[in-house]
Design a binder for these strands. Structure first.
Length: 155
DNA sequence: GCCAACGTTGGC
DNA sequence: GCCAACGTTGGC
C-alpha cells in the first residue's frame, strides 16, 4: 500500500532545485539523526511512496515539490565521516545507527508556504503543523496528500 | 538572535 | 526509572 510522507530539507543543503538537477533527480537523504524519523525510513517508507518536499530553516518555509521514495534504507555514510556535521562518534560501522534512503524529485511546484498551510482548514491536523513538531519526516494522510497534490499540480 | 518545544544524556 | 540539564530544531 502506497503511503505518503513529508520530508524537511534545508534548502541551503539540498533544495528542490538541487534534487531536480541531481543525476536521475535522485538524492540520498543524509543527516537524519532522530530515532523516530529513522524508524519511519526503516519500517514505514517503501519504494514508490509519495513525498512532499519541504524547505525548512529558510526565509520561506513550505512545500516546494513532489517526490517519491526511490530506494530502501542503507547506512548513512556521513555518520562515519569525522569532517561531516552529521558525524556520530558513537556509531559503529558494524552496527550503524543512522540510515538513509534515496528520494527522487518528481516535480518542482510553486511554494505552498507555511502560512498557507496553516490557513487551510482541510490541512489543520497535518502532523507537520502540530505545535512543537520538530520531526524531519512525518507521515501524511492520503486525504492530505490528495488535497495538496490537487492544489499544486492539478487534476 | 530569540525562544518554545522536544529529544537525549547522565547522575542518582 | 526519574528528572534536571543541556542541545537541537525551526519558526519568527
Amino acid at each position: 500500500m502506497t503511503q505518503y510522507w513529508l520530508m524537511k530539507s534545508e534548502p541551503e543543503e539540498c533544495s528542490i532545485d538541487d534534487a531536480i538537477n541531481a543525476p536521475d533527480a535522485t538524492v540520498p537523504w543524509t543527516g537524519v539523526r532522530n530515532y523516530q524519523a529513522r524508524n519511519f525510513m526503516r519500517d514505514g517508507m517503501k519504494v514508490g511512496d509519495g513525498v512532499l518536499f519541504y524547505h525548512s530553516s529558510c526565509p520561506e518555509p513550505g512545500i516546494v515539490g513532489i517526490a517519491k521514495v526511490a530506494s530502501g534504507t542503507r547506512p548513512d555514510p556521513t555518520q562515519f565521516d569525522k569532517k561531516s556535521p552529521y558525524f556520530d562518534p558513537a556509531s559503529k560501522r558494524e552496527e550503524p545507527r543512522w540510515l538513509l534512503l534515496d528520494v527522487k524529485a518528481v516535480k518542482k511546484t510553486r511554494l505552498m508556504g507555511l502560512p498557507e498551510l496553516r490557513d487551510t482548514p482541510e490541512l489543520a491536523d497535518m502532523v507537520v503543523l502540530k505545535r512543537g513538531n520538530r520531526l524531519s519526516i512525518t507521515p501524511v494522510s492520503e486525504a492530505h496528500w490528495n488535497f495538496i497534490k490537487r492544489k499544486l499540480v492539478g487534476g
